[in-house]
Nucleic acid binder design. Structure first.
Lengths: 218, 218
DNA sequence: ATGATGAGTGAGCAT
DNA sequence: ATGCTCACTCATCAT
């Protein structure tokens, strides 16, 4: 989606080394740099160099990297133009294949592949950028969610404390009632009845509160 | 830390193209591949190729990539050996600089830089792998934290409900007491007193519960 | 020198 | 072809 949303100021240039090069050549730099005086070694050098060059340039991925390299300023890399088809990079990735193929039809097969590879690479660049952005956003959201849950947790804690306070107030009210009842006949019988009711229906888990209440009713 | 903990099955090989190549050379592949028959063009080609090669190989970063490339199987990439100093990759990154410098002292400056660059790259490989792992672990932990918080939230909700239930039980007990009191003299006066106490100290927020209680004491 | 991180790259998978 | 993700590389910053 957001290709080119973040043109980097530091664009690096990479190039594939075809895998069949892996063990084929191991000319330490000295071979190529320092020993260019004698004719024979020169020829050997040339042979070797050509071997490498031909091999390298034979690959269709040839010059994409150079074309993909950053401009001097690179902040408007998206404005770079591919001369063969007169399209900016920005346009190259937004155009659809149907139209692109029309533009490409007169170019060599090699060049067609090159341009398509440029397109692919540019698209990849965007995908990765999107992927990274997405990850950042997701992390932010999770962080916010955690903060929100913490807030809610505090609210709930406060609610619990408020409820406990109310319970205590009510228990104290009951205490008053019970003490008041002491003045009357049959108070013991009544208190016992109340205690039985409470014990049966109210499974206390808060030990202190339980003790308080039972003390009231004894 | 965990360098080489995850040797990838797919190791790619990259090479820097020195930046001064950007506009210096633009030999389309055809130049090098197809036109090797005539002597003059051959010489031109050689000249051109050498220009590029010398430039490329002059850079100290020369062949690191080839040496860093994957083995055939690549699962034991860490076992790869750098012949000049007879160290495996695994050892190369674990050895300290002091010892390494001793091993390197007889090599050419260029080669020393190459090996140090290999070391740097291998270390970087590890850093990035660690970074990725760290991110994954962190995400897992956050996810677990969220689950834990959700669980706690449910527990708290249950606690709240239990408290509300208890409140109701106690209120019902009060109701019983109050109704019992009706049998005695001065009952109205007592009830009014209890009601005043409760209203003063217990700021109800649960409207339904408040109504229930006030109905009791009226 | 070392460690961490951002951005670009190709490989490879899935659609 | 397209989108995504992984592992790698390098540049760059900070220590």
């Amino acid at each position: 989606m957001s290709n080119f949303t973040k043109p980097s100021p530091n664009v690096t240039i990479h190039r594939i080394i075809p895998s069949n090069h892996k063990e084929s050549s191991n000319p330490s730099e000295e071979d190529c740099v320092s020993d260019t005086s004698s004719a024979t070694s020169y020829n050997l050098l040339v042979e070797r160099c050509l071997e490498i060059l031909v091999d390298t340039f034979n690959k269709t991925i040839g010059l994409d990297d150079l074309e993909l390299s950053s401009d001097e300023d690179s902040s408007n890399l998206r404005k770079k133009i591919i001369p063969d088809i007169n399209l900016t990079y920005e346009r190259l990735i937004s155009i659809n294949m149907r139209e692109l193929n029309i533009l490409l039809k007169d170019l060599s097969k090699k060049r067609r592949m090159e341009i398509k590879n440029i397109r692919r690479t540019l698209k990849n660049r965007g995908y990765v950028a999107d992927s990274r952005t997405r990850r950042l956003i997701e992390n932010d959201e999770i962080e916010k969610e955690i903060q929100l849950m913490n807030k809610k947790k505090e609210q709930v804690s406060e609610e619990i404390n408020a409820n406990k306070f109310r319970l205590n107030v009510i228990i104290e009210s009951c205490e008053k009632i019970l003490h008041s009842i002491d003045k009357y006949d049959k108070a013991e019988e009544l208190k016992a009845e109340v205690k039985a009711t409470v014990m049966k229906e109210c499974p206390f888990t808060d030990k202190e509160m339980e003790k308080t209440f039972l003390n009231l009713a004894t």
